[in-house]
Nucleic acid binder design. Sequence first.
DNA 1: TAGATTGTTAATCGATTAACAATC
DNA 2: TAGATTGTTAATCGATTAACAATC
Lengths: 213, 213
Amino acid sequence: MEKDISQAVISRLPRYLRYLGDLKDQGIERISSQELSELMKVTASQIRQDLNNFGGFGQQGYGYNVDNLYSEIGKILGLDHSYNLIIIGAGNLGKALGNYMNFEKRGFILKGMFDANEALHGQKVRNAEIMPMDRLASFIRENNIDIAVLTIPKTGALEYVDVLVENGIKAIWNFAHVDLNVPQGIEVENVHLSDSLMKLSYNIARSAETKAE
Amino acid sequence: MEKDISQAVISRLPRYLRYLGDLKDQGIERISSQELSELMKVTASQIRQDLNNFGGFGQQGYGYNVDNLYSEIGKILGLDHSYNLIIIGAGNLGKALGNYMNFEKRGFILKGMFDANEALHGQKVRNAEIMPMDRLASFIRENNIDIAVLTIPKTGALEYVDVLVENGIKAIWNFAHVDLNVPQGIEVENVHLSDSLMKLSYNIARSAETKAE
DNA sequence: TAGATTGTTAATCGATTAACAATC
DNA sequence: TAGATTGTTAATCGATTAACAATC
C-alpha cells in the first residue's frame, strides 16, 4: 500500500505543470530544482520533496528534463486520459465554463448542459445542448458522464446531488455555495468564489492596518 | 505589534460565517464549539483556537451567541464596509461575476467593466457600463476603485497589472491563469480554475486506484 | 575524474488536537 | 452551587526546510 500523498502536494502540481509548460514553449530542455525554485518563488527543497513523492524524475548533476517532467506530472494529474463532463446550470457561469476551450484540451469533454429554465432548452454551448432537468439521470447513464459541474444556486445543488450519485457520477466540481454530502468514493472539489473574495477583503483590511502602524 | 494570523485560519473564516448565517436564519441563538464542530465536521478545538486569534467571543458554560459571532467574523473579514470594484474582461466569466448580486450584498460594489472588444462598449451589466481599455486609468482614479477583477487571458492580465497598480488599486482578484507580480502592499487572490479541475482529476484517478486494490 | 545536483534523511517549524484550569 | 463550556497551555502531528551522501 502506497502512502497517501497530502492534498498540499497535489495542490502544487498544477502550478509546476504550468511553469514547465512555459519553459517547454520557450524551448528550454533542462532545469534544476534551484532554477525552478527561483522562478516559482518556492524552495528547491520543496520541489524535490514534492516530486519524490511520485518517483525520481531527475538525474544527479543534471537536473530535470523539462519535457519529461511535464509529461510525468500530467500523468500524475490524470491528464493523459479524458473525462466526460456535464454542466448543471446554464447561467453566465455555466456558459463561461462550457466555453472554456482549454478544459477540452486537457481532456475534459463537455457532453451536455442542464437548466431548469425552459427558454434555454435546445440552445447550444459549443457542441453541447442545454437540456431540461428531467433528462439528467438518463443522460448521465447513457453518456458515461464522469464529472458534474454544479453552477446552480445551493438549493438546486442539494436537490440534484443524489441524482448524480445514483446514476454513477464519479466527481462533482461544485460552484454552489454549500457543502455537499456525498458517499465515500465520490470526489468533490469546491470553488467557493465568495469565500475567496472575503479572504481578499480580509487581506486588504489588514494590509491597510499594517501601513497605518 | 499583533502576531500574524495564518492564511489557514483566514481561509476557514468564510465557512464559519456561512454556517453561522444558516443558524441565524434558523433562529438559533447560541451554539457551543462542540455542536458547531459536529455540523461543520471539524474539531471543536480548532474552532476555539481559530476564534481566539481574534478575541474571546464566547462565554464559559454557555457557548457562543450566534448573532454576535456572525457579526464579529463579518467585521474581521472586512465585510462591515464597502469596496469599489471593476471587472476587466466582459466575457462570460466577467459577466457572471458582475451579475452575482450576493457580492453587492457583502459590500462589493461593481462600478464598471472594461473590455478590448468594441462591440461590447456601452452595454451594461446591471448598473455598470462596459468601457474601452483606454478609460481604465482615469476611471480607477476618479471612482476610488479598490479591487480589480481580472477575467481576461493571461497576456492581457500581465499587460494591465501595472496600470492598476499605478492608479492606486488595492487588490486584484485574479482569474487569469498566470502569477502576477505586484509590489508589496497590493493584495492578490488567485482563482485558478484549471488548477482546481486538475486537482479533481487527480483525486478521481486515485480514488479509482484505491477501489481496484 | 571533478562538479553539479538529485534523492533522502534529519532538523525545524507551524498547525492541529488534546487536556484542563478558569469562569460563567 | 454544580455543570457546562470556554480560553489557553501543552502535546502531537504533519509539512517545510536544511543538510549531505549518493550518483550522474
